[in-house]
Amino acid sequence: MITYLLFLGTLAGIYAILALGLVVSWGQAGMVNLGLAGFFGLGAYASAILSGAGVPIGLAWCLATLLSAAAGIAFCLLTRTLRGDYLAIVTLGFAEGLRLVETNERWLTGGSDGISGIRAPLKSLLPDAFPSLYLAVTWAVVAVAVVLLARLLRSPFGRALRAVRDDEQVAAVAGKSVMRLKCQAFGIGAALFGIAGAVYAHFTSYIAPDNFGVQITIYIFLAATAGGYSRLVGAVAGALAVMTILEASRLAATAIPGLDAVEIAALREFAIAVALILIIQWRPDGMFRMTNQRAGTRPVARPVAADVHS
């Protein structure tokens, strides 16, 4: 039981890092990254391959993070003059394309067999303490990310970011470099996806292309939205909530009589999707109010600024 909880806690921490990445790029800068599974996979594969080639794990994590950030910034620059929908589609295409590369470049990625036996820090030295240690490492990453991001978002950079999100034209008129701000935010988001991937790879010690499908994207959007979509602490709480829903639905589903195993499984996936829809429907108010108070480029007295723009 305790191993199970430690395991879920670690996984929830990884989801929290992903959700934080989404909060920065989506919640704070208004850019949808539908390819977050791709960046997650990029970080995982980069770190697994590098550490397999003898690079120390810490350095591998850093390089994986940088690589993912660079990819994110590149896509942002590519679609810089277009509506957000294009960035969404391009990142989705990137995730699919990367999955093909992971599946087919067997010399590098092991193909659909995946990479197994990824080194885990300290596991050989302290096999029994490893689950708790790794839980601590993961949540330390979460904590560092939250602290750094909170500081960043309170700074002028954060205010400018929210100004851009709420109205790009107004922000541009106010002298902000819209493109630069957006790409920075998107890059930070991608960096977080990348490090989450690296943490994940060395945790499970096995990765395969199927790990980085569309399901994880849905879960993270669910986590970020459940937590209020623009709040850092909310993202962490949301990640914990999603993990609870995912695992608790196992027990709930078996409680329904008269259904066979396939029906139960389909119903479970259905319920998770419906939960995301309902949460987005109920939540938007809270997130706009909270962030506009902090945007700082417009009078705080203005009630719901978002209504002005269509």
Partner: peptide, 21 residues
Amino acid sequence: RRPGAHTPLMLAVVSIALNLA
């Protein structure tokens, strides 16, 4: 019904969940 600068992207996200459902 609650328009905002990000409604189109919010709708896109909801439609992905809808697809899964």
